[in-house]
Amino acid sequence: MSDSFASLKLVPKSEVTQSAKDFKSDQEVRWCPGCGDYAILAGVQSFLPELGVKKENIVFVSGIGCSSRFPYYMNTYGLHSIHGRAPAIASGLATSREDLSVWVITGDGDALSIGGNHLIHALRRNVNLKILLFNNRIYGLTKGQYSPTSEMGKITKSTPMGSLDHPFNPISVAIGAEASFVARTIDSDRKHLVEVLRQAAAHEGTALVEIYQNCNIFNDGAWEPLKDSDTADDLLIRLMHGEPITFGKEATHGVVRESDGSLRVAAASEVGSDAFIVHDAHVEDPSYAFALSRLSHPETLANTPIGVFRDVNRPVYDRQMSDQVAHAKETRGPGDLAALIRGKDTWTVS
């Protein structure tokens, strides 16, 4: 079971078989009825038994926002912290306790606005954290202001004449920070969600999973074209490692590489299906995954890739930190406090 999760090799294995209900806490879930968070919660609870680790060794850390209430509903250890700081807090926990499986739950405002700095630095350090970023393109808990992923011109409570902010693409931000694992999935697609979580959990280092999540109160239907069976196939590009990147009901379209190295969407009728590139999530150079992230259109949602953009091996911060501690103990012996405080130059008064 958990042998397939290299990132969890230091986490104690569960001796009992777990089920989704083992991960449900006794707290009443207080998200709005119809919120996309319910589906994600159920997806995570159904997936966690697969990890095969003791549930007391799993910790969910969150910031502030609707999504950040998530830890309360998990029957694991949980820490609901302050706005934007969950990646920093989780970094401290993960770098001091390698026997834990540490998950961060955050939202578009929490991760990309107030906590943007912590997010990019967690990603560049590559601490063993799994960050689930619920993106609903709106501030929900403060009741409906635009977020850093809201489309330009969006009319909200704080932008009656339309938002002037150019949105972030969270996948581009993460790849720009040289994250070692970057993926996107959708709240309502349980199968896809779980498959992405599986790959994220197996990854050694920081994994960022953007989850398109619906806020049915303040931004209902933000991702609807990607969920509607009439339109989804034409808009969604399902990335699968080792498979040609094609989309459309009859795989009528795909992604091709131009002579200058850039990527673009083309019709099979135009270029021939042999021209479509084969997805390789293990490409070291982040510019490939970045180019994939730029295919999507922020307003029409055309050409929106989902799946694992990037999954590469990089040194893992917490492992290296432990290695340094172990090396210091090995070469210098365990610390001797009396010798330390004496130092080199002492004198004695008799």
Partner: peptide
């Protein structure tokens, strides 16, 4: 070798955040 871990964070907030973690 005393088992001390030091984490130079990206800012003051992350520094105390890591300590709280």
């Amino acid at each position: 070798n005393f088992g001390v871990r030091t984490f130079q964070a990206e800012d003051e907030i992350a520094a105390i955040g890591a300590a709280i973690g």
